[in-house]
């Protein structure tokens, strides 16, 4: 391999990590502000302009806190857990394109790579919950495992519908297939199911079972303090970014905003709109019961996603260019 390409890729990967950190900071602040305004309060106001420096203050606090490992915790997994949760989320971002062909690795199997990486995340959450030697986090870990596994299935089946329509698993191709009409219009049921499952996959309210603060204290990360807790938070925000990015790429036309010329600006705009919508959901809804949530996936979402796949298959074979 040529040294120049290697260097570019390395720089790109580093840049990606910086972007991720930036995203976490922005989202941390924006979530507080948005939920605050939903609650009819202004949110953070004291640090900088409208509290814009609050995430930095939090980061300083987390860095300076004592790094507590519980006495009877499984030390190896206690360390490994946050890493296993956060690294796949970072890796998924490597294939997500920002503009046509502009990704760290615009591979032909991008769609499945993202899902493969998302499948690893539950392991991280389960390790986090298991290793803390705490009953709350244990219950949270088991919930997390059950939830993430059962919600991956309808998500993947819906993605198969997209694959069928676009004829390619390369994310750039999928987006370019939506240059005029988005898949959100062509497959609205798919979008609905994908949105629900994506919210569940990123452990956001109303599907925040693993950390259910009113039931399980802090769920999986009850025993985490300091920067390890920060890593768990980072994993969650990154999962949210990946999930929203997938929604934008697969259904909302990515960088296309027909009839305007395609631009990465549209993608970033849509990305943050979707994330704001997810925060809005958090500000509105109560948490689902854990067994209702399982039922929802197995009884309704999986059959619905299969029906969607069948519908798409029929339409795609009947009408050319669907």
């Amino acid at each position: 391999m040529n040294a120049r390409i290697f260097l570019t890729q390395l720089l790109g990967a580093l840049g990606l990590i910086v972007i991720l950190g930036f995203n976490v900071i922005i989202m941390d602040w924006w979530e507080r502000k948005l939920v605050g305004h939903i609650h009819r309060r202004p949110g953070p106001m004291h640090t900088g302009w409208h509290g814009i420096l609050q995430p930095f203050a939090d980061m300083l606090k987390m860095l300076s806190k004592e790094d507590i490992v519980p006495d009877r915790a499984d030390r190896l997994f206690f360390w490994l857990g946050p890493a296993v949760a956060v690294v796949p989320a970072f890796m998924a971002l490597a294939v997500l394109p920002l503009a046509p062909g502009f990704a760290l690795a615009d591979i032909g199997n991008g769609l499945f790579f993202v899902f493969a990486m998302q499948t690893i995340m539950p392991f991280g959450y389960t390790l986090i919950g298991w290793s803390g030697h705490n009953k709350w986090s244990l219950v949270g870990a088991l919930r997390s495992a059950a939830q993430l596994i059962s919600y991956e299935i309808p998500m993947l089946i819906v993605a198969l519908g997209i694959l069928l329509a676009a004829g390619s698993a390369r994310l750039t191709d999928i987006v370019n297939a939506q240059s005029t009409v988005w898949y959100a219009v062509k497959q609205p049921i798919g979008l609905l199911i994908f949105f629900i499952t994506a919210v569940a996959e990123m452990n956001r309210s109303p599907f925040d079972m693993p950390e259910a603060e009113s039931e399980l204290v802090a769920g999986i990360h009850t025993e985490y303090a300091g920067m390890k807790f920060g890593l768990v938070m980072m994993a969650e925000y990154t999962a949210m970014l990946v999930g929203s990015w997938m929604i934008v790429l697969l259904f909302l036309g990515g960088w296309h905003l027909w009839p305007l010329p395609p631009s990465p600006v549209w993608l970033v705009l849509k990305l943050y709109l979707v994330q704001s919508g997810i925060i809005w959901l958090r500000g509105t809804y109560l948490r689902l019961r854990v067994d209702t949530m399982m039922e929802m996936s197995w009884k309704y979402l999986i059959p619905a996603s299969l029906a969607n796949l069948m519908l798409v298959g029929v339409l795609a074979t009947t009408f050319k260019g669907f």
Partner: peptide, 16 residues
């Protein structure tokens, strides 16, 4: 009740 069921909004609305 809202807090117990996992929503932050009801409690803040109720306090107004």
């Amino acid at each position: 009740v809202g807090l117990d069921l996992g929503g932050w909004t009801p409690v803040i609305y109720a306090f107004i």
